[in-house]
């Protein structure tokens, strides 16, 4: 198929559109693995990306950063946590995200988007807004950077086996996650016990595979 580009094919416009479709599909079909594009755009908007705030010589997941940036702007606020602590305004990661998006850092209970640099929140998930009955859509959306995601069986101590069910899933779906603690699943389930209130989640691994877990998804830790 021939594509006629209105703008230069490399612009962020197309990256944002493509990334959004993956995020939408991930949330509409919980547990389905969607491969995100690598946010490599000439002009380098991901250049000088901050390093991992609490792990030495480690980078922040660029796929997750790109997806996060594709949704935030000056109209919304965000929070970012690493190692079980919320990062402050002077943190390099916060300044980098604010500068590139125009979004502001706010207290966790007031933000629309939260970014966890690892596959654990260290109990911080419960600080995010679950919305209200009048405005359940005002709840937060959280991104977790996990090590690996798979839809084929994996064994080993590093892997969690999750059984998912709910809207978007025909019967049930198995998801295997590495780099996420078992206690985090308990925290996630606790955040969605009062539907329609709840927090919507994305898990994104180091290879750019993305899974959505909206508040309607029931998660069973096998």
């Amino acid at each position: 198929m021939q594509i006629v580009w209105l703008q230069s094919p490399q612009t962020k416009i197309y990256y944002n559109a493509s990334t959004f479709r993956h995020l939408l599909d991930s949330l509409a079909r919980p547990g389905k693995l969607n491969q995100l594009e690598y946010p490599e755009i000439p002009g380098g908007w991901l250049d000088e990306a901050p390093t991992h705030p609490t792990r030495e010589n480690a980078t922040l997941n660029p796929y997750a950063l790109g997806a996060f940036l594709s949704l935030i702007d000056g109209e919304v606020s965000f929070a970012i946590a690493s190692g079980g602590t919320w990062l402050q305004q002077e943190s390099a990661a916060v300044r980098w995200l604010s500068l590139r998006s125009g979004a502001s850092l706010k207290s966790p209970s007031a933000v629309a988007f939260a970014f966890f640099c690892e596959g654990r929140s260290g109990g911080l998930l419960k600080e995010l807004s679950q919305g209200t009955l009048l405005e359940p859509e005002s709840s937060a959306t959280a991104f977790y950077c996990v090590e690996q995601l798979s839809d084929t069986p994996k064994t080993g101590r590093d892997w969690l086996e999750l059984e998912l069910s709910g809207p978007g899933i025909l019967h049930s779906r198995r998801l295997y996650v590495a780099g996420m603690e078992r206690s985090e699943i308990v925290a996630i389930n606790a955040s969605r016990g009062n539907y329609p209130l709840g927090i919507d989640l994305y898990l994104i691994d180091t290879l750019g595979q993305c899974v959505g877990l909206p508040r309607t998804t029931k998660i069973l830790n096998r």
């Binding site: 944002n16 939408l24 949330l27 594709s70 109209e75 859509e137 329609p196 919507d200 508040r215």
Partner: peptide, 15 residues
């Protein structure tokens, strides 16, 4: 577009 996209994600999350 981003605003519409954010709202679409919430709409999908709360059928």
């Amino acid at each position: 577009k981003r605003e519409v996209r954010r709202k679409l994600l919430k709409a999908v999350a709360i059928p």
